[in-house]
Write a protein that binds this DNA or RNA. Structure first.
Length: 706
RNA sequence: GCGCCCGUAGCUCAGUUGGAAAGAGCGUCUGCCUUCUAAGCAGAGGGUCGGGGGUUCGAGUCCCUCCGGGCGCGCCA
């Protein structure tokens, strides 16, 4: 039941109507529509029209195997049907011809000149970077993406970065698709992990609140807490009776009592600032930090509890192991899921009748305190605007790009505080091990009668980042012999194991800088650092996004530090090459530059027909490049329906790779035919536009030179 | 025990709703810088898609079963 969400079928997604369609998708959809109408009229049946990219360019740009399905219904040979359809199909705009291939495929060959003209018309001026997302309309669907959510008691590590980079990337993609996106970062500042560090300061270090405040002002406070946290873990493990100390500390923090509470506030606030500084290095922004302490103090749970009791969503267990607890039954949610989404969720095992409370989840403990899940239910009611409570908001952090990150407060608003919450759709980026509590929240929404909201709360699950055994040994961790043969070793933040984010970034920047120094000797020191930074971030973000979410990433410095092959820098380098060509072209001869510009305008107007450079088989490599460049929309659609980031990283890599082949084959600036030269220049500009857009969605910036 | 995920080239991984001859990167081997930046390009080699059965015109993809690995099943979060 719990791992289901790792690969969710996103049946309940609100459609992405605002997603910009580029040429490929437009023509492909015309093809599909023509087939649908034609088959409907001629054969009086409705067959789902699937299309695909043929394996080879010589087979066209889009193909449909629809005749295989139609053959079954018509009881005729697929190839004969395909022939009939190909012969009688009316001309389709943008498609030069439709042919029959193989056992009954219908292959569409696009009109190349028209396609190219449409592609450059839709991707804007070659001088303009198109990375900026279009500002969403006021009535657009509002989506809250919750990500990062690192316990504020220690430094961020590589696993946290996977979460943050996934969340940030999808926030960018959703924004690109027209959503109003609000990014929230949930802060568990009253939990066990913070309590442990507070306990460490109070009882191991004997540090006062004022002394901790002084320590917290120094850099690397998160590193200090990292080590302290590991020592506390050992301290507690040595003697189980010490757990009483932790419970007391936790209780003090939750209730806001004494030094423990004051210190928890100091520690968590300082660590939050450390985390945001680290994530600023990766270009990740937040709109709001939601603090658990404010959920407690503003009594969100009381309001949520009243709703749950009123609707009978929770019940007081009077017997059995949960006696005295308020519990929620999960059968109802499962049954509702099975009934409502029978097709999509068919893989889920049928629920057998279980008279015991095996599937019950405790929401309120017999002591009367609410569990984490209960607080999460309250928070999610608030996110959907269903709770009769709201936070106050204060300034917290200014990102380098000027964006303001706010934090919740239980006391008062800072002037100019925006309005948060009230979304129609939520994405929670949380690792897949927490699928069960996420499911409980959905069940609670459903039990309260909020079906739409339940359908639109998506657990955006991903798997952990582990270390390769070699890497773990390099880091000095003791590995049992039998574990050394395993593909990966899970590390424990509790034990102080793991690759710290800032350390990794430092190492990547240093490695990139070494390379830049040999390649760009004439650049100034700040310029070189800026390039090294961009390359390091490109490598890191790409590395974390190139896997499917369900893959356990086995981290290794060698792989992560690579700037060659399928990496971010490879893609950045392709953009840099385009920059070089366009820059050199402009520098070489002003007269030529003017002539190029004039011819490029003629290509746009159609005065020069690009078709003449794309028609011959010898030009197929250029045509292939143009089609791929104009297919970003198709990849984005797959990315959004699957919620898998690797479709985008793959697209960036494929396009960069195809451009590199083109680059080696055609020496653009030496092309003698002026019109052809302008055409080739326009192709490179088109490639740059699409690469820059895609990299922008991945949170990667390509430098001018590298 | 129950549930979920994974198993594809030496290694790390792609392969959306089943569709045309299984892909990429790394590593290995061979070439290519007086050239728009070689963080690159060209080529070679490398696979019983864990095993077996089934559904289908068509299966790496769906179903069953077995083997091997991971995770989840708290009055923790």
């Amino acid at each position: 039941m719990t791992g289901l969400a790792v690969f969710p079928i996103i049946a309940g997604l609100i459609p992405f109507e605002a997603l910009r369609r580029l040429v490929y998708k437009v023509v492909e959809e015309r093809f599909r529509k023509a087939l649908r109408h034609h088959i409907h009229d001629r054969y009086k049946t409705d067959v789902p029209i699937v299309t695909e990219r043929p394996p080879k360019l010589s087979m066209g740009e889009a193909a449909s195997p629809v005749c295989f399905e139609l053959a079954k219904r018509m009881k005729k040979a697929p190839r004969a049907l395909a022939q009939e359809i190909a012969n009688s199909l009316k001309p389709i705009k943008g498609i030069a011809r439709v042919e029959v291939a193989g056992g009954g495929y219908l292959n569409a060959f696009f009109d190349r000149g028209e396609f190219f003209r449409a592609a450059i018309a839709e991707t804007g001026d070659e001088a303009a970077a198109v990375a900026e997302p279009v500002a969403p309309k006021g009535d657009a669907v509002k989506t809250i993406v919750e990500h990062t959510s690192i316990n504020p008691n220690k430094a961020a590590h590589i696993g946290h970065l996977r979460n943050a980079v996934l969340g940030d990337t999808f926030a960018r993609v959703l924004r690109h698709a027209g959503r109003r996106v609000e990014v929230q970062n949930y802060i568990d500042n009253t939990g066990v992990q913070v309590a442990d560090v507070v306990l460490g300061f109070l009882h191991l270090e004997k540090t006062s609140v004022a002394e901790v405040a002084a320590l917290a002002a120094a850099p690397k406070f998160d590193y200090l807490c990292w080590d302290l946290y590991a020592r506390v873990t050992l301290f507690l493990a040595e003697d189980k009776s010490r757990l009483e100390l932790r419970n007391q500390t936790l209780k003090d923090i939750e209730e806001g009592h004494g030094d423990a509470a004051a210190m928890a506030e100091v520690v968590s606030t300082a660590i939050n600032h450390c985390h945001l500084r680290t994530l600023d290095r990766l270009g990740i922004d937040y709109d709001l930090l939601t603090q658990e302490s404010d959920i407690l103090r503003l009594k969100f749970w009381d309001a949520a509890f009243a709703m749950l009791k009123q609707r009978g969503a929770v019940e007081l267990a009077t017997s059995g192991k949960n006696a005295g607890c308020w519990i929620m039954q999960l059968q109802a949610e499962r049954a509702a899921t099975a009934a409502g989404e029978a097709g999509a969720e068919g893989a889920e095992a049928p629920v057998e009748e279980n008279p015991e409370e095996a599937d019950a989840k405790v929401i309120v403990r017999s002591t009367g305190t609410v569990t984490y899940v209960g607080k999460d239910i309250a928070l999610h009611l608030w996110k959907f605007g269903l709770l009769e409570r709201d936070f106050h908001y204060r300034h917290f952090h200014k990102h380098p790009d000027g964006h303001e990150a706010w934090v919740t407060s239980s006391e008062s608003d800072d002037p100019g505080a925006p309005h948060f919450g009230q979304a129609q759709e939520l994405f929670n980026v949380i690792d897949s091990r927490q699928a069960y509590p996420q499911k409980v929240v959905v069940a609670a929404l459903r039990a309260l009668g909020y079906k739409d909201e339940a359908d639109h709360l998506k657990h955006f699950a991903y798997n952990v980042v582990a270390l390769t055994p070699r890497c773990a040994i390099e880091m000095g961790y003791e590995i049992p012999e039998e574990d050394a043969k395993r593909p990966y070793i899970e590390v424990s933040g509790r034990k102080g194991q793991g690759v710290k984010a800032d350390d990794l970034l430092d190492q990547m920047e240093a490695s990139a800088l070494k390379e830049v120094e040999t390649r760009q000797p004439e650049a100034s020191e700040p310029e070189r650092r800026a390039i090294a930074h961009a390359v390091a971030i490109g490598a890191l973000r790409y590395f974390l996004l190139r896997f499917t979410r369900s893959t356990v990433i086995a981290f290794d410095f060698e792989d992560a530090l690579s700037f060659e092959g399928e990496t971010g820098p490879y893609v950045q380098y392709a953009v840099v090459r385009v920059n070089g060509i366009l820059r050199k072209g402009a520098e070489m001869d002003p007269a030529l530059a003017i002539e190029d510009a004039t011819n490029m305008a003629k290509l746009r107007s159609g005065e020069i027909d690009a078709g003449k450079f794309l028609g011959a088989p010898a030009d197929d490599d250029i045509w292939d490049l143009v089609v791929l460049a104009a297919s970003l929309d198709a990849r984005l659609e797959v990315t959004l329906t699957s919620l898998e980031p690797n479709f985008l990283t793959r697209f960036a890599f494929d396009l960069a790779q195809m451009f590199n082949v083109f680059y080696h084959k055609h020496h653009i600036l030496k092309e003698k035919d002026a019109e052809k030269r302008a055409f080739l220049l326009r192709v490179t500009a088109l490639v740059r536009e699409q690469l820059v857009t895609t990299l922008g969605l991945l949170g990667i910036v390509a430098p001018e030179k590298m």
